[in-house]
Nucleic acid binder design. Structure first.
Lengths: 123, 123, 123, 123
DNA sequence: GTGGTCTAGACCACC
DNA sequence: GTGGTCTAGACCACA
């Protein structure tokens, strides 16, 4: 479900938070839905439970989830502009992608073509 | 010339190495060309010379540059498949991009459309 | 356990890496075994922790060890041809030895005899 | 004639000095014999003339050669115990060899056997 | 506690 | 001037 790269310099809790954030913003995780328990998620991803705690705390600080003692962690996005957030995150992703591809000497059309080909599984 | 984000979790020496790598692989820095001296680059980027040393050492381990005492650091890509490296790096970038966008609930066509729109500056 | 010659032109971190490499390749340090912590080894050898970091980093680049944050550095030689590495290292040592002895005017038999005598402690 | 490893941490002038020392001690270079001129040796080995100067100066400090202005550098080993020096240098070489091989888990007999095999070109 | 990064500043070898 | 090594000491992330 989630993909963790232990060797990445990006902290594990950060990688996880960003992935969950995308799932929430995409609507994949609906409002009010319960997230996996800390122990369960830690066990599944083979990471330290403390790391999951940190992830959930961060998401809570960002106002994406809220914890209810004894019950668990729940998606909590009342009144949030989901579509706006999604577009904003996608714009960030895209800019980073274009910037790095530009560093490889590629320009607009080439990037689009390269992406299209890759999506078709041609290379 | 190079852009360092001090707040990124990616180490400074790694950010720098990846940017120089792209410049080399893109052909922007030709074989045999001299890179900026350690002290000069450190001064320009306002980072410690040791950090630049670490960057150059990493590039040397990757076989992209070679250092000559008293002379400097030079691009050294004899017998390297530049085009292959470029394609490989682009494929990595693209896969990461697609994976993250997929987390936002987007599929192939939507991603291409979103990228195209962004490149046209429509949003 | 390890012996560092501060006056040698060979960098301290390199001396240490080569000695640990031999211990690993010889099987003295088994796969998965934990190496001494950076601070501990630095303290024992009376060198700066950063120097040990450099040693461990080099061994990691060579694929002999792998580090896990908060846990330590571990021997990691999955799928490595240990015996081949050992033979290769021994061949290097031997060639260097023979080359230098040849510079002293000694030939095959004399070298073997000299070595044998020295091993017996006769001189 | 002489073999220089530019990537070695051992300074070039030191590598060269040790090789010439061995040639002198072995009798290969007899007393009074003229060494190659600085420019000639530098040109042959493709190193900086200053480096050869440093080598010759070091050998002079060790009392193995003496320079005569306008004439050149000459082997000068009057009254030296050549055989003793040779044995001493060989003992050093051998001890270093045995120590490193021991680090690979090899003991006396194995080392002798390995050396013999290598000399016969069997591996 | 662990490893990892970064800074500051020193000294060395080579050109 | 160049790169290379080492020390000292600080701060961070992870377990």
């Amino acid at each position: 479900m989630y993909h963790i790269d232990q060797r990445s310099p990006v902290p594990v809790y950060e990688q996880l938070a960003r992935q969950i954030e995308r799932h929430i913003v995409s609507g994949d995780l609906a409002d009010g839905q319960k997230l996996p328990s800390i122990r369960e998620l830690a066990s599944t991803l083979r990471i330290n439970p403390n790391t999951v705690v940190k992830t959930y705390r961060q998401l809570e600080n960002e106002g994406l989830v809220s914890s209810r003692k004894g019950l668990g962690i729940f998606v909590s996005i009342l009144g949030m502009d989901l579509e706006g957030s999604r577009d904003s995150l996608f714009a960030e992703l895209t800019d980073e992608y274009v910037r790095k591809a530009a560093g490889l000497g590629m320009e607009g059309d080439q990037i689009v073509q390269g992406l299209t080909r890759r999506l078709k599984g041609e290379n």
